[in-house]
Simulated assay, not measured.
Amino acid sequence: MEALFWGCLVGGILFAVVTVLLGDILSGAIDGVLDFLSVDFLNPMVLASFITVFGGAGIMLGNYTELTSWLQIILAMLAALVISILLYFGYVRPMENSENSTGFSIQELAGRIGEVTIPLPALGYGEVMVRVGASNTMHIASSFDKQPIAAGVRVVVVEVADGVLRVSELEERKGEM
């Protein structure tokens, strides 16, 4: 029984070391292998922690208690299950929910405020800078009102048509900025 526990402990530690050193390479190689299971808690980190804790708890129970082999296995599995659940709900799941994307759709820009960087002629195209998330993006724009708009003027995106922002000069009320 001790060999099983040692094998799980050493295997779990080796998995952790290999994951730290070669994680990106392995992630790309086995990406989607367990997708058919489609169970969130079967995360490799959770499974590896279960195996490692099972081995470590089994070794400790074998060395410091006089319990039978079956009771050692059951208690080691319970300890591994508790630690894995704590790891999943305390680390893995919050990290999955915190992932951010910097991607956006140009259609989402309608209603946003921007600034003209290249003047917009009455019937032509220019360029507008719009803040998206933590960065500024530059987009081809045309005047919605068919009026020229100078560089540096604040505008509002009225609509997006054919990948071009159709903007109108922003009329700011006194006291607002």
Rank of each mutant, 00 (worst) to 15 (best):
M1I: 02
E2G: 06
A3E: 15
L4E: 04
G7H: 00
C8W: 06
L9C: 09
V10A: 04
V10C: 06
G12P: 08
I13F: 07
I13L: 11
V20S: 09
L26N: 09
L26P: 04
S27P: 05
A29R: 13
A29L: 15
V33Q: 12
V33E: 10
L34E: 07
S38Q: 09
S38R: 11
S38V: 05
D40K: 04
D40R: 00
D40P: 01
F41Q: 01
N43I: 06
M45Q: 09
V46K: 02
F50G: 03
I51A: 15
T52W: 14
F54E: 05
F54P: 05
G55T: 06
G55L: 14
G55I: 07
G58E: 03
I59V: 10
L61D: 11
L61E: 11
L61H: 09
G62N: 14
N63H: 11
Y64N: 02
E66Y: 10
Q72S: 11
I73G: 03
I74A: 08
I74V: 07
L75R: 08
L75F: 15
M77H: 04
A79I: 01
L81E: 10
S84N: 02
I85E: 04
Y88E: 01
F89I: 04
G90W: 03
Y91W: 15
Y91E: 01
V92S: 03
P94A: 06
P94G: 01
E96C: 02
E96F: 09
S98G: 11
N100G: 13
N100L: 15
S101P: 08
S101Q: 13
S101M: 11
S105Y: 11
S105D: 13
I106G: 00
I106A: 00
A110K: 02
A110M: 08
A110F: 04
T117W: 12
P119E: 09
P119H: 10
P121C: 06
A122Q: 13
G124E: 01
G124P: 09
G126W: 03
E127G: 01
V128T: 02
V128K: 02
R131D: 11
V132L: 08
G133Y: 12
G133C: 10
H139V: 05
I140E: 14
A141C: 13
S142F: 03
S143M: 03
F144M: 07
D145S: 10
D145Q: 11
Q147Y: 12
Q147S: 11
P148M: 04
G152R: 08
G152Q: 01
V153M: 14
V157F: 04
V158H: 07
E159R: 07
V160N: 02
D162W: 05
L165F: 04
S168A: 11
S168C: 05
E172I: 13
R173C: 05
K174C: 02
G175L: 02
